[in-house]
Design a protein around this nucleic acid. Structure first.
Lengths: 343, 343
DNA sequence: TGCGCGTTGTGAAACCTTTCACCTCGTCCC
DNA sequence: GGGACGAGGTGAAAGGTTTCACAACGCGCA
């Protein structure tokens, strides 16, 4: 027994012929079963399963003019944060009988662009995207050409697109305020690359907190990283451990939890006590943060809610002719744990 | 300036009219530009961009009978392992001008089933899937109905599907052999749920190693977990730390790195020295493993290569009429690090 | 002049589903 | 008994793209 020869897929026409009814009736069984007599309906249904009929979504979509697919373009699949957002997207999409496909831009503007183009060609119902550059004209263009777009975790082109974000400036501020309250004065900010807006905003918030405390905003010790990964956190840990007593910061605020966890691990490995020698605050409050060897203080964002709200906006844009673009901003909160406790 | 009114998208017909050529010519510009005179071609191209023409992939696909989309159904998006596999998939898909969409079954057979159905309806070129149950009839059915399927990270229905896997029994064996060489005799296996094949195979390998060393196979201390997450690893750590001296294992082999990292963190937190009091071996060698506070010994799988090879098989099945199903098995290797070093 | 050839462009058909106006029966009621 | 009505069913049209047989045209050559 080998492979079945590549036979043409079964169409409604085949089903109609085999069941001895018309095309329209088969379609009615599929779409308006209450319009079809019980006996006919079961007969057609049986034929369908015997023949292995599978609806052709392309044809359906061509006729309907729109698809039953949502897409989520992720900025960084290695960061669990975005998976939690994705889960929120599914929470809302599933009851609407929509299917969610994910793509991964990996912080690459070109990849992102390619995916957006493909998705437009697919005529997806809408696109959720955490963009490399929220001010990219491509997003507004896509939206104006008829593919609803919601920007997630960034504020974008006010009035021209919907967006759902968390106030990153505030997040940065409360993180550093927390460290200041704990008595720290030499504070490092670890993050990069510069072009990512979240990273800039969190730093802005950090500086703001210093300023309000009467410290010069440039007292923030900045350690730039190539990306927000565990590896970069480890690297930063080595750099910090290498600093001599006075110039070494007593606390570090990391642009996300992956960096913070890397930093934490390297500190443990190099004998730098956390929080004794170095207090650490992360960002995102991913599940890993609470579970670290020294549980990590972090800025929590309502990740899943972010995905939910974004999807609601997307669906409104897709279906409501009176849709008005909305910019939702959530407020982050600080979750204090051992990595910043009084020693 | 508000939103553009929801106008009908631009079709080839519109472009043809605006450019003063026929439908067929527009299509030729798109698909066989060398057949069109230079002047016509540039004129049509200009009109396209002026009008904002976007190809309708549904119609294209309807006509062509197949799509330019590959799908990857992930078992567990929170495990970086699968993202590395996905990267391998893209390595191969991108040059072929195929777009890769990911879905997340989250180890839920129903979710998996729903996605597979949707993908069949979408008439995707093919599906890569790490299934909850590789022996599920649904996979073979999908394949026989014309959607190429390749099973990733599992061996499935020999001769009826392609699959690309890593020898998990061998992986389990070398992990435990390594611990035996280090002198350990009371070894724990931490993993679950039972229904996941990888988990059973790795345990089988572990028992095999004990057997070969002349120890009874049931000398393996089994700690079942609900899932393979950091949280479960932490939970397991508490249980192990709670055991009194003699009954406590001196080494633990974890079914994946997430569990191992959770275990490791909890040991550090509870003052159980690693590897002194407990040696730990993980599985997958995710980037996090090398970066842990105590770098983790782990069983490495060629993740990206797994994705690449699987995609090659998928494309062969999709395009080559003489395709023969193939079962590729890679050999895992042990990466020894501090978590099992001689203390 | 007439023929053939190559280049360029044309337009109808096909892909599969859904919808909608319309047809055909029985039933029921006056 | 005739008309209205409702339930059940029909079949053509539409949606956007690609393909393919074919037409139109200019040109060189006999």
């Amino acid at each position: 027994m080998g492979t079945t020869p590549p036979t043409r897929p079964v169409s409604v026409k085949d089903v109609a012929a085999a069941a001895g009814v018309s095309l329209g009736t088969v379609s009615n069984v599929l779409n308006r079963p209450e319009k079809v007599a019980e006996s006919t309906r079961t007969r057609v249904a049986r034929v369908m399963s015997e023949l292995g009929f599978v609806r052709n979504e392309s044809a359906r979509q061509l006729r309907a003019g729109k698809s039953r697919v949502l897409a989520y373009v992720m900025l960084d699949a290695s960061n669990p944060f975005f998976h939690d957002v994705a889960r929120g997207v599914e929470d809302v999409a599933e009851p609407e009988d929509l299917v969610v496909f994910s793509c991964h831009s990996d912080q690459d503007a070109l990849r992102e662009r390619t995916y957006l183009d493909r998705l437009a060609q697919q005529r997806v119902q809408g696109v959720l995207v955490t963009p490399v550059d929220p001010d990219s004209a491509a997003l507004v263009e896509l939206s104006e050409r008829g593919t609803p777009v919601v920007v997630v975790d960034r504020v974008s082109a006010p009035g021209r697109l919907c967006s759902v974000a968390v106030d990153d400036v505030r997040g940065g501020r409360i993180a550093v305020e927390h460290l200041l309250e704990r008595g720290h004065r030499r504070i490092a900010y670890i993050g990069g690359p510069e072009r990512i807006g979240q990273i800039r905003d969190r730093r802005t918030g950090a500086r703001l907190a210093l300023e309000q405390a009467g410290l010069p905003p440039d007292s923030l010790v900045e350690l730039a990283t190539e990306s927000l990964t565990v590896a970069e956190g480890i690297e930063a840990g080595s750099r910090i451990a290498g600093l001599s007593g006075d110039s070494r910061p007593t606390a570090a605020f990391c642009a996300n939890d992956l960096v913070a966890l890397g930093l934490l691990q390297q500190c443990v490995a190099l004998g730098v006590s956390v929080p004794g020698d170095l207090a650490i605050v992360g960002y995102d409050d991913i599940d890993f943060a609470a579970a670290a060897a020294v549980p990590l203080t972090s800025v929590r964002q309502p990740r899943r809610e972010l995905g939910r709200r974004a999807t609601q906006l997307l669906l409104d844009e897709a279906t409501n002719p009176d849709h008005v673009h909305d910019q939702v901003t959530f407020v982050p909160e600080l979750v204090a744990r051992a990595s910043t406790s009084h020693s």
